[in-house]
Design a protein around this nucleic acid. Structure first.
Length: 594
RNA sequence: UGCCUGAUGGUGUAAAGGUAGCACAGGUGACUUUGACUCACCUAGUCAUGGUUCGAAUCCAUGUCGGGCAGCCA
C-alpha cells in the first residue's frame, strides 16, 4: 500500500457530527459507538452514498465502534434482490482495507430475540461475532417485521396508534397544509380493542390494498406536518424480496427506521437534511414505547451535490431505463459500480469525501475537486505505458527495415525506486496525430515541418517530408532520427522543446479505447426534470488505438497512465487478451489546452 | 400567512470572543526526456444593519436571501 492509499496516515477528519460523537465518547455515554448505513435496495449506490458510507464507517472506525449495513427494505414494490447484491458488493469495495473490520453484519437468517430487560420486553438484534465461522449477511429491516408488529400492538394498547379507514385522498385532505391545521380522522378515537382487532385482521389479509392504515395518534394541528398522525403501516398484497410472502402489511420508513436503529443498538443515526423534520417523530415513536435500553438519536448532514453529475437514484434509474447509458455500471455513471469500472480506486473516493467536510448547508461541489483527487491517487500508483490513440505513421529514414533499438522506459517516476522496461524503436512508428501540425499555432512545441521533437525514452527526430496521397491526405511523415541523442549517448542531454509518445508500428498491439467525458452538459443536471435532454452527446468516443506490446497481458483493476494522455484501465466486462478494451479513467491535466 | 434549517474568496471548507487559514479552480514564473508531477509567488471572502465588548465570522436583535416539509416513497 502506498502512502496515498494509506488512510491511516491521514489525520482523522473533524466535523460537527464527529464533535458530537467525541463529546459522547468523552462522557462515556455509550459502551460502544454504533452507526449504520441504511440503503433501500431500489437502485445502485452512487457517489452521494459514498459520503454517507465514509461518514458512518469512518466514525465507527475512529471510535473502535461498529457500523451496520442494513437494508431499509420496507417497500417491496420498489425493491429487488439485484440491488441488495450490488449494494453489498459496492459497500465492501468502498471500505475494503480501510474500515472492513467495523462492518456490522449478523448471523444469516436471524431476527431480533424477545428478551426481558429491566423488567420490560425488549428486542435486540445482535451482530455476528467475527471469526466464529457462521454464515453472515447484512441486517434487514424486513427481519424486524414481527418485532415491529409487536411494537405497533403495544402502541395501540397505549392509545398511541389507531387504525384509520380514510382513503389515501381523504388522508391527504384531512392533513391540511403547511399554513392550515389538519382535521382529526373520524376513526381517531376507536377503542384499543377495536384497533387491535382491526390491526390483526389487516395483518391476516382481510382487507384490500389501501383500505385501512395504522396511524400514530399525535396532533393533527401540529405545525410540523410529520406529526399530524403519520401513517405507520399500509396494506400491500405483494411478496417481499427478503421476507417472502408472509406479510401483506408493511411498515413505513418513519416507523421502521427508528425501531430498527433501536433493535440494533445504534447510538448515532446519521441521515441527510431532508429528515430534520422527521426527527421529532423519530423521538416520539421511541419515547412512546417505554423501551428499556438507551435510545438512538438522529443527526443530519447535507448530502453531496457534484457538478455535472446526477446524484439521485430515481433519475439514475431513468437514465438506465431509457438507454441513455449502457446500464447502472456504465463507466459514465456516478454509481460506485460505474466509477469502479471506470478505474477510479476506492481510496480516491474516500479521500475525496474526506476533503469535502460535513456541514448542514447545501452546496455544489466542483467536479474539479473530484478529478484532482483521482489524478493525485492514480499519479502515485499507476505505471506508465506508451499508447497512441489516434495514430499517424512516421518513417525514420535512417533506420533500416527490421532494425531494432532497445530503449529503457521508466515504469513509474513517482515511486521511490523506479523500475524500467524495454520499449523498442523501429523504422516505422506511430505518433499521436495531435502531436503533429502542418501549420502549427504559436508556441506549438511538437512536430512541425522542419522541426524537431524527442520521442520519449528514444531520441530526437527531425521532420523532413510530409507524404500525402492523391486526395491530399497525409499518409506518413518521413523523419531523421538523431541517434546520438539516445540515452547514454553523447548528445543525450540535448534539449528540444517537445517530447512526444510513440509506439513501434511493427510491434504495436491493437485495442479499443473508450474516451469518456462528463455525462451532462450543464453544472446542475439534477435541477431540471428535463435532465435526459442534457446528456452530453460526446460523453463517449471510441477509438482504435495502438499500444506498446507490454500491455497485451493487462487486466482490470490495474490502472495505467498512458503517457501524456491520461489514466486508462481494462474494462472489467469486455476486455480480453484477444480483444483489449480500455476505459479512459481521466485525462491528465492539460495546461496547454487552456 | 405555518414549521424546520442554513449563509465565510469563483467552489468546498476551517477558525468554540483575540493575526480570517487550508484545498480546489484561476494567474505568473521555475523545473521537466509526460505542456504531467513538483516547487515558488499572486489573485480573491465573513449576507445586511444595528447592538454588547478593549476586541465579533463567532454573542444578541432586526432584516435579506437560500434550502427542506403537505407519499399509504426512503
Amino acid at each position: 500500500m502506498t502512502a496515498a492509499e494509506s488512510s491511516a496516515a491521514a489525520p482523522a477528519p473533524s466535523d460537527f457530527i464527529r464533535d458530537i460523537v467525541a463529546a459522547h465518547v468523552a462522557e462515556k455515554r455509550y459502551a460502544k459507538i454504533v452507526t449504520r448505513f441504511p440503503p433501500e435496495p431500489n437502485g445502485y449506490l452512487h457517489i452521494g452514498h459514498a459520503k454517507s458510507i465514509c461518514l458512518n464507517f469512518g466514525i465507527a472506525r475512529e471510535n473502535a465502534g461498529r457500523c451496520n449495513l442494513r437494508f431499509d427494505d420496507t417497500n417491496p414494490v420498489k425493491e429487488d434482490i439485484e440491488f441488495v447484491d450490488s449494494i453489498t458488493t459496492d459497500v465492501r469495495w468502498l471500505i475494503a482495507g480501510w474500515a472492513d473490520e467495523v462492518l456490522g453484519v449478523k448471523a444469516k437468517g436471524t431476527t431480533p430475540a424477545l428478551v426481558p430487560a429491566l423488567g420490560r420486553p425488549d428486542y435486540f438484534q445482535p451482530p455476528a461475532t467475527p471469526g466464529s465461522g457462521i454464515e453472515t449477511e447484512a441486517f434487514f429491516a424486513s427481519d424486524y417485521f414481527t418485532a415491529l408488529y409487536d411494537c405497533a400492538v403495544e402502541l395501540i394498547q397505549r392509545g398511541k396508534a389507531y387504525v384509520c379507514d380514510l382513503s389515501a385522498e381523504d388522508t391527504e385532505s384531512f392533513r391540511g397544509s403547511p399554513e392550515l391545521p389538519g382535521r382529526d380522522s373520524p376513526f381517531r378515537n376507536r377503542s384499543a380493542a377495536e384497533n387491535l382487532d382491526l390491526f390483526r385482521r389487516m395483518k391476516a389479509g382481510e382487507f384490500p390494498n389501501g383500505a385501512r392504515s395504522l396511524r400514530a395518534k399525535i396532533d393533527m394541528a401540529a405545525p410540523n406536518l410529520w406529526l399530524r398522525d403519520p401513517l405507520l403501516y399500509r396494506i400491500r398484497h405483494v411478496p417481499h424480496h427478503h421476507a417472502g410472502a408472509a406479510w401483506c402489511l408493511y411498515p413505513l420508513y418513519d416507523y421502521a427506521h427508528c425501531l430498527s436503529d433501536y433493535f440494533e443498538g445504534i447510538t448515532h443515526s446519521i441521515c441527510t437534511l431532508e429528515f430534520v423534520d422527521h426527527r421529532p417523530l423519530y423521538d416520539w415513536l421511541l419515547g412512546s414505547l417505554d423501551l428499556p435500553r438507551a435510545l438512538p438519536h438522529q443527526y443530519e448532514f447535507a448530502k453531496l451535490t457534484l457538478g455535472y453529475t446526477l446524484v439521485s437514484k430515481r433519475k439514475l434509474l431513468r437514465l438506465v431505463q431509457e438507454n441513455k447509458v449502457a446500464g447502472w455500471d456504465d463507466p459514465r455513471m456516478p454509481t460506485l459500480a460505474g466509477l469502479r469500472r471506470r478505474g477510479i480506486p476506492a481510496h480516491a473516493i474516500r479521500q475525496f469525501v474526506a476533503n469535502l467536510g460535513v456541514t448542514k448547508h447545501d452546496s455544489l461541489t466542483d467536479v474539479a475537486v473530484f478529478e484532482h483527487t483521482i489524478r493525485e491517487a492514480l499519479n502515485h500508483s499507476s505505471e506508465r505505458r506508451l499508447a497512441v490513440l489516434k495514430p499517424i505513421k512516421i518513417v525514420l529514414t535512417n533506420l533500416a527495415p527490421g532494425e531494432v533499438l532497445v530503449c529503457q522506459a521508466t515504469n513509474n517516476p513517482q515511486s521511490e525506486s523506479p523500475t524500467t522496461r524495454a520499449v523498442e524503436l523501429t523504422r516505422e512508428v506511430f505518433i499521436e496525430s495531435d502531436d503533429f501540425a502542418e501549420v502549427p499555432p504559436p508556441k506549438y512545441f511538437r512536430l512541425k515541418p522542419g522541426g524537431e521533437v524527442r520521442l520519449k525514452y528514444a531520441c530526437i527526430i527531425k521532420l523532413d517530408e510530409i507524404v500525402k496521397d492523391s486526395a491530399g491526405a497525409i499518409t506518413e511523415l518521413r523523419c531523421t532520427a538523431d541517434l546520438t541523442t539516445r540515452s547514454g549517448q553523447p548528445n543525450c542531454d540535448r534539449k528540444v522543446k517537445g517530447t512526444i509518445h510513440w509506439v513501434s508500428a511493427e510491434q504495436a498491439i491493437d485495442a479499443e479505447v473508450r474516451l469518456y467525458d462528463r455525462l451532462f452538459t450543464v453544472p446542475e443536471p439534477g435541477a431540471s426534470e428535463d435532465f435526459l435532454s442534457l446528456v452530453n452527446p460526446h460523453s463517449l468516443e471510441t477509438v482504435q488505438a495502438k499500444l506498446e506490446p507490454s500491455l497485451a497481458a493487462s487486466a482490470a483493476p490495474t490502472c495505467y497512465q498512458f503517457e501524456r494522455l491520461g489514466y486508462f484501465t481494462p474494462d472489467t466486462k469486455e476486455s480480453a487478451p484477444a480483444r483489449l478494451v480500455f476505459n479512459r479513467t481521466i485525462t491528465l491535466r492539460d495546461a496547454w489546452a487552456k
